[in-house]
Amino acid sequence: MQMNNLDSLPKKKILSLFMTCGFPTLNNSKKIFNEMLSHKPDIIEFGLPFSDPMADGPIIQEANKLALRSKLSTQQSLDLIKYLSKSKNNTSFVIMCYLNTVRKFGLNKFIKNIKSIVDGIIIVDLPFEEEGAIKKSLSKNNIHLIKLISPMTDKKRSQKLLKNSKGFIYYISATGITGSNKLDYKEINKNVKSIKKMSSVPVLVGFGIKSKKDVIDISKKTNADGVIIGSALIQKYFDIKMDFNKYLKSLKKFIQEVKI
């Protein structure tokens, strides 16, 4: 069986970068991902745009909207990922999406399209109670179903959730939606420690990480193995009033900064 890059993540300071596919247009999206890939991050998360991204904040919502404006199809997103996989090297590819996208595309067809290309998948609105058949099919094809743990997940539930977990654990740092504010390092540390007692796969902290300082603080003040940055990467596009060339440059600078 083909190797899964997620099985050989580094031990510490893992960097995962999230970006919505097809944002702001399909063509420019390619350029963004190529830029991201050139920095050799440990993980790239490909967001599949959805009309009703219930668990995402305003920035990723806007990115979804822009991507869908040009009627981007699921197939086009998957083709983009396939195209980018040529220069994948050691970077892990992870898809982040909502269940309706996979369901409507067809699970088997979806897996066929991403097999040997994508290492993991996060289905935001698929709780472990409902994952049965999907997890089985994914695991047969060596694609890890990544688990999310929130501060609301109690110990008993975490134990069930984390059983046989693979790839990494996505710890939702704030009880919030992607791109929200405050980070409570004490709470993060407490919860990450407790997760690490139950599982041996790396724990990454996501939601609300905006700057180099945040990345360093997570690394210094908590036991987490790495971070996920999403909204902050997209936010830059709106900050510079959607001038794409300037955006690429600021993206480059930002990624260099957060690679600690």
Binding site: V124, D125, P127, L148, S150, M152, D154, I172
Partner: peptide
């Protein structure tokens, strides 16, 4: 039916 929500809402 069912419960298709993110892990933040599931415990709730």
């Amino acid at each position: 039916g069912g419960m298709y929500v993110s892990e933040t809402l599931m415990p709730l």
